[in-house]
């Protein structure tokens, strides 16, 4: 199983990149089963793919905490069996890919063991897929706690803003020093480039990462987003989609 996680500053274009990677990979007819995980509590990937989510991992987490609070040994045994049922129920299985949303956490408190419990169940599920793409949030905690602790490729997305690059450098630092997430390769994607050639290389040097590629400002993406149209339906020759093809080739993902 190959795995890719996408991280970066909020609004940098993680979800658009994830959706376009999915489009390119599916379009190439890559054999195997693909799982997309929306690990951003904001839950933007589902609409970008044209899906509506009924059950999230967050919902299951709440249900577990509620059930355990009710207490009783019987409940423990029942929950142990029920976790797989609920995860399977939360999995949206489509023709080209499957989808799982992490969703929001509503109950205050850490409840770390719940995350362990859910990650155990998710890890069993992941084994059945050939490719897992995770759309994360700026921090990697959601992915680490609720989905998986190591990925093959970690793609950090930034826009040309100073804040975007600082966030990218911060994520790189967290991965390298705090070992929050293990990855075989880590690379930068520069999004919303306008004209200036070399801006991507410059940003990559600044952040200290390999440049996977640049995505130009793409009017189609802006238009599709504003219309609520799935990015999977972007034209093949849309500049963003063409750029993502190159990024996947550079990373030897596809």
């Amino acid at each position: 199983m190959k795995s890719i996680a996408v991280s970066g500053k909020g609004g940098a274009g993680k979800t658009a990149l994830t959706a376009m990677m999915t489009k390119v990979i599916i379009g190439k007819g890559t054999p195997g089963k693909i799982l997309l995980v929306d690990a951003d509590p904001a839950g933007g990937l589902a609409p970008a793919l044209g899906l509506s989510v009924e059950i999230t991992i967050g919902n299951i987490r709440e249900e577990i905490i509620r059930s355990v609070r009710k207490g009783g040994r019987k409940t423990k045994a029942q929950i142990a069996g029920a976790v797989d049922y609920k995860i399977m129920e939360a999995l949206a299985e489509l023709e080209s890919f499957s989808f799982l949303a992490v969703g929001r956490t509503e109950t205050d408190g850490c409840f770390c063991p719940v995350n362990d419990l859910l990650r155990d169940a998710i890890e069993i599920l992941l084994k059945d897929f050939d490719l897992v793409i995770i759309d994360g949030e700026a921090g990697l905690e959601q992915i680490n706690r609720k989905v998986m602790r190591s990925v093959d490729s970690l793609i950090i997305v930034t826009d040309p803003s100073h804040r975007g690059k600082r966030t990218a450098a911060g994520i790189k630092d967290i991965v390298e020093t705090q070992r929050l997430m293990k990855s075989d390769q880590m690379a930068l994607v520069m999004n919303r480039i306008k004209g200036a050639v070399g801006l991507g290389e410059e940003a990559a040097r600044e952040v200290g990462l390999k440049l996977a590629g640049c995505i130009p400002e793409d009017e189609n993406i802006t238009r599709y987003d504003s219309m609520g149209k799935p990015l999977l339906e972007l034209p093949e020759d849309s500049p963003g989609v063409v750029a993502v093809q190159g990024i996947l080739e550079n990373l030897r993902i596809n």
């Binding site: 577990i64 609070r69 207490g71 142990a80 069996g81 063991p113 719940v114 419990l117 155990d120």
Partner: peptide
């Protein structure tokens, strides 16, 4: 932590599941 019992219960569930697998 006031929720210590909840967490401990969930740890039990993890043990149950891992044994079940």
């Amino acid at each position: 932590c006031g929720e210590r019992e909840v967490c401990d219960d969930i740890r039990d569930i993890i043990i149950l599941r891992r044994k079940g697998k």
